[in-house]
C-alpha cells in the first residue's frame, strides 16, 4: 500500500474529529472526538514506522521507535481520560448539565 492512502485516511479521521469538537456541545462527545484525533495520529505513526522499516531494510530495528511512541501516546491518553471524565462528572454535579457552553461560568 502506498503511504498516501494511510495519510489520507488519518487526515480524514482527524478532520472528522476536528469537526466534532467544533460543532458538538456535549462535553463527552467532544472528549470522544479528541480520542478519535489521537487515534488517527497513532495510525499515521504506525504507517510511517512500517514505511521507514521497509526503506531501511538492512537495519532490523528501524522503525521500532515509532511504534513505541504510539504505545506512550496510548499511556498518556489513558491517564488523560481518567482525569477528564472525573472533571466532567464534577461539572455535572455542579451545574447539572454537560453542555460546554456552561463552562463560560468559570470566568466569573
Amino acid at each position: 500500500m502506498p503511504i498516501n492512502y494511510y495519510i489520507t485516511l488519518a487526515l480524514c479521521l482527524f478532520a472528522i474529529g476536528v469537526v466534532g469538537v467544533l460543532t458538538r456541545r456535549n462535553a463527552i462527545i467532544v472528549f470522544m472526538c479528541i480520542e478519535l484525533m489521537l487515534n488517527s495520529v497513532n495510525l499515521l505513526l504506525v504507517a510511517f514506522s512500517k514505511m521507514h522499516h521497509l526503506a531501511k531494510g538492512a537495519a532490523a530495528t528501524a522503525g521500532t521507535d515509532g511504534q513505541l511512541f504510539v504505545f506512550f501516546i496510548m499511556v498518556v491518553a489513558a491517564a488523560e481520560v481518567s482525569v477528564g471524565l472525573a472533571i466532567i462528572v464534577m461539572m455535572y454535579r455542579n451545574v447539572h448539565s454537560i453542555n460546554i457552553n456552561f463552562l463560560n461560568r468559570l470566568k466569573h
Partner: peptide, 15 residues
C-alpha cells in the same frame, strides 16, 4: 516526494 513510498504490509517483525 514521500507519497510514492510503500508501507510494508503483513511482513517485518518490528511490531
Amino acid at each position: 516526494e514521500i507519497k510514492k513510498n510503500l508501507v510494508e504490509m503483513g511482513t517485518g517483525d518490528i511490531g
